[in-house]
Amino acid sequence: MFSVVIPLYNKELSIKNTIQSVLDQSFQDLEIVVINDVSTDNSVEVMNVFNDERIRLIHQQNQGVSAARNRGIEEAKFEWIALLDADDLWKQDHLETFVNLIEKYPNHLFFASSFEYSTPRESIINRPGVEDYEIEDYFKESLTEHLVCTDVVVIKKKCFETEKYNEDFVRGEDIDLWTRLARKYKIIKSNKVTAIYRTEAENRSDSNVLDIRKTFFRDVDLSRMKNKFEKKYFKKLMFTKLKYYAVKKEWNNFFYLLRKFI
């Protein structure tokens, strides 16, 4: 039922626990598609400890995480795509939660549960006391909550026939994809926490040191947005980034983004 797509690049300290968290699922109708993006550490050797025919390790030339995820989705055998980063973890009932959601909302194609950080942080529940619900306006509700994270989405494979990860983006490729999909499909959101985002994992990326043209901000055009909440959502993201660039005196990125903002 589920194809679990995991991009792998230099995660030798994490990948074993990540894979094990998938194998430990209470719902077992799955395959695991790991795309090795030419890891230079012992990630592949660590993978060899598993002897499970449901795990497929596919190697590709170093093309980045977006290309790895796109390749994994293309290789997937099942109709439902579940995404997971190579350094994060699922709780045992993660996939079972989505089975129940899919049965409850049979006409929907995009589902998301909730996650928690491995280190203490304040969490926001979008609708306290509600188990699951349809997100009426993704951009409006994203103003107050981080609704979607890679580790907690399940999407029908056919959705990726028209919307794929943008392989030009080094960072923010997930935000770019969620917003494009959210314009087309209603998202069913569960408040149930089923995944753990490991803040202490190795090689966590820092998008702030990059040329902003390599991020999703490159394609943001406020003048073309008809949804007022979509415009407000992106302006909030841009304003936060502008403040950061000003503090760090990264003026090339600052003025490039400022021209978009105004």
Rank of each mutant, 00 (worst) to 15 (best):
E131Y: 10
F139N: 05
L147P: 00
K140I: 02
H59G: 05
I124C: 09
F110E: 11
G72R: 04
A67N: 13
F98A: 06
Y117N: 06
Q63M: 14
A76D: 07
N62A: 12
I135R: 01
E145N: 15
I102N: 12
E116P: 00
G129V: 07
R121K: 12
F110V: 13
G129W: 03
E145K: 09
I81R: 11
V44D: 07
E79A: 11
N107C: 06
Q61D: 14
E122D: 14
I81M: 10
I135Q: 02
N48L: 09
D88V: 09
H108G: 10
N42I: 05
N126F: 04
S39F: 10
G64H: 13
I73C: 09
V154R: 00
I155V: 08
K156Q: 02
V49N: 05
V130H: 00
I124D: 07
P128C: 09
I125R: 09
E74V: 10
P120N: 06
R121S: 03
I58V: 14
V152D: 12
V152I: 14
V153E: 01
Q60W: 02
E134W: 01
D52L: 07
T144F: 05
F111L: 05
R69C: 08
E131N: 11
Q92R: 12
V38Q: 14
S66W: 06
I73Y: 07
K91G: 01
N48K: 15
E45V: 02
H94D: 02
I35Q: 15
Q61V: 12
K156Y: 03
D85M: 08
K156R: 06
N51I: 10
A86S: 15
I35W: 08
D52Y: 07
K104Q: 15
V148P: 01
E136T: 14
E103V: 06
P106T: 05
V148T: 14
G129P: 03
E53V: 11
F78K: 15
A112S: 15
A67Q: 14
V130E: 07
L83W: 00
M47K: 10
V46K: 15
L143S: 11
C149H: 01
E74P: 03
V99T: 11
K77W: 04
E145R: 11
E96Q: 15
F139V: 08
F50R: 06
L57N: 13
R71F: 04
D132S: 15
F115P: 01
I73A: 09
E122S: 06
I35Y: 10
N42Q: 14
T150Q: 02
T97K: 02
F98M: 03
N51S: 14
N36M: 02
V130G: 00
T40A: 10
D93L: 01
L101N: 04
D132M: 00
H108V: 05
V65A: 12
E116I: 12
F110K: 12
S123F: 04
W80E: 13
D137P: 08
N62L: 07
N48S: 09
Y138S: 02
L57W: 04
I135K: 02
T97D: 00
V130I: 13
D41G: 06
T40Y: 07
E136R: 11
F98S: 09
F139W: 08
V148C: 03
V34K: 04
K104G: 07
R121L: 00
Y117A: 04
E103A: 11
K77S: 13
K91C: 03
E74Y: 14
Q60F: 03
M47N: 08
D37S: 09
V154M: 01
N51T: 10
T144I: 10
L84C: 07
G64I: 06
Y133Q: 07
F115R: 01
L101K: 08
